[in-house]
Design a protein around this nucleic acid. Structure first.
Lengths: 337, 337
DNA sequence: CTTGGCACTCGGGAACACAGAGTGCTAGAC
DNA sequence: GTCTAGCACTCTGTGTTCCCGAGTGCCAAG
């Protein structure tokens, strides 16, 4: 059905269209890529490709433009991920190495990725899922309020102010803190709920109401912050591109964390570091855009996802190379800290 | 020079232009606002206003459009800040009241303001300047690394991992923590540097290298985070409007914290809660946009600034009302917590 | 000072022609 | 059977012209 030459034609169409942003015609194509055949032959192949739905023409007698299906074939079979230049790799390394804490790592990563790809970059904070508790701190504020601070091994810090149902003396808070840390230190966050389930019962009865309140806030924090936090950068790169769905929708999606999460997608458990490419209508919500994403994280724990979002007409090989490289470097950084 | 009627004409021009986004002509103006005079008279007044530089015409024989100078006069003398409706006030109150921590307060505030004004909202985090230390926590990670956590009375938490020059036993860390807290608890952040200046000398000599390292990181944190953190929301509202300077520049400015800070401006120390309006060319950097901002914060401490950024053609009375109201409510919330 | 009248200007839309790029098709060459 | 060359056809985009109408500035009269 599709012989090698037809595939070569499709590849050429995608490449030309991506670089020029204009429908590509048979003549220009035969010239620019030395296909060794005449424009007429290319036209025949194009007709076949259009028949199969890989390309389309905006109007009769204009050049051809790849369809989502065409891009899909290109990404799957016709292109190779393009590695970064040595200079780019060095730049990544030095830029990321300067980060001082987790917030900084994430901020730098997202900016870096935006700059590298000239698209909108999106980075999800490492989820608490596979993190472990490093320390729980209770700071008495007044006799009826304490600040709960949870520190994880990924360097993440969550804090909440807890209103107690009754006044509690400081030394009892200190005791509770000691019990909590003894119980939770080093444990995975996902196992926290069961670990603390019977904890109130092991306390003196007068401490139980306060403990229950604090624990409920703690559990709430774990659930809420589960995988909600996500940041983006490079919105300015949207200014040039034109989206099928309109710029406004894209900007709105970027500020809706829920939508953004769905776009980044789930990390498939079997091959967590694989690149995910969703093209145009394959995306939920924003069907005029493409998303290139991957999981990242330290060691074999895939903790979160990052990627870029751009117009369907995107340089996939370069984008995929940048996403993959950044994911690797940031994973290294996280593993080292 | 400018009698009452001319001012009324200017006001009418601004109002009409803001609502219709089309140059406003003498005839329509005389009809819509019952000025009791004929279009010809209005034309004479317009000629005078144009002579003075308050309005201009895009091309010969089109209607008139306010200049930056015209908007300035309108804001200063011809308009009144428009208070919010009762429903809006209730919505603000309930929305902000649900915030669980400082991050949440800021996030909710910026979103709220963006939604209310249909512009881009910008909120600076309360600076550490006038905050006080609530608690300093040192968590040993390994024998050569500790996590430094600084908690302020505004609910803000800063954390850093500190690499120690030599291995230090846990009980020494605990001792150092106790000393630090005894020294700093309740003190203003700005007084921290002098308070800790002689601290190493009061410690056993073997603890001094570690203490010095930790203190230098602590001081660094105070300086770096001084007033850097700033967030925005509502970029989608830019999609419709057109900017003299181009959408791209605006989006870029939003991601440059330094530029954003400059746009929000300084809180003038004498009247900190006054509304600042910068119109078009009055702005540094982004001269095609207007910024309405004000200081906010708890009590008489003006801690930070918030505001909105939009096209010069903006409904100033409504925007100013929303900014002022949100600043008041968020100040209340902060004071209460 | 205000008003009505009037000539003038200019932008924007409609109608139109046209060049150019691209196509599909068919007949001939390898 | 596959590729190529030629040719007629179909579009879009652009430039031109024309005209309408909104809006103006100016002037003379109330």
């Amino acid at each position: 059905m599709l012989d090698d030459r037809k595939l070569a034609v499709l590849r050429a169409i995608v490449e030309d269209y991506v670089s020029t942003n204009e429908p590509v015609g048979s003549k220009a194509l035969a010239e620019r890529h030395n296909l060794k055949v005449s424009p007429a032959t290319v036209r025949n192949d194009m007709a076949a490709l259009e028949e199969e739905g890989y390309i389309t023409q905006p109007h009769t007698s204009a050049g051809r433009v790849p369809t989502d299906k065409g891009y899909r074939l290109f990404v799957d079979r016709l292109s190779q991920v393009k590695p970064l230049s040595a200079a780019e790799r060095r730049a990544i390394e030095t830029f990321l190495a300067g980060a001082v804490d987790l917030d900084d790592v994430v901020t730098r990563t997202v900016r870096l990725l935006a700059q590298l790809t000239r698209q909108v970059a999106v980075v999800q904070y490492p989820t608490l899922n596979r993190s472990t508790v490093r320390h729980v701190e209770l700071v008495p504020l007044t006799d009826r309020r304490v600040m709960l601070v949870l520190i994880t091994n990924t360097g993440r810090v969550e804090q909440r102010v807890v209103e107690l149902p009754e006044a509690v003396e400081d030394h009892r808070i200190a005791n509770l803190r000691a019990v909590l840390n003894a119980c939770l230190d080093g444990c995975g966050l996902s196992s926290v709920p069961e670990l603390v389930a019977d904890l109130p019962e092991r306390l003196p009865i007068e401490d139980r109401p306060a403990a229950a309140t604090i624990l409920s806030v703690l559990l709430e924090t774990l659930v809420e912050r589960h995988d909600e936090k996500i940041v983006f950068a490079g919105a300015a790169n949207l200014a040039g591109a034109d989206f099928a769905t309109g710029l406004r929708d894209v900007l709105e999606a970027l500020e809706e964390h829920v939508v953004l999460m769905r776009l980044l997608g789930e990390t498939t458990s079997d091959t967590p570091s694989a690149l995910t490419v969703r093209i145009g209508s394959e995306n939920p919500y924003l069907r005029g855009t493409s998303v290139v994403a991957t999981g990242y994280g330290s060691g074999d724990n895939q903790l979160a996802r990052l990627g870029v979002l751009g117009p369907t007409r995107m340089d996939y090989p370069v984008t995929m190379g940048a996403v993959r490289a950044v994911a690797r470097y940031v994973s290294q950084i996280l593993a080292a800290s």
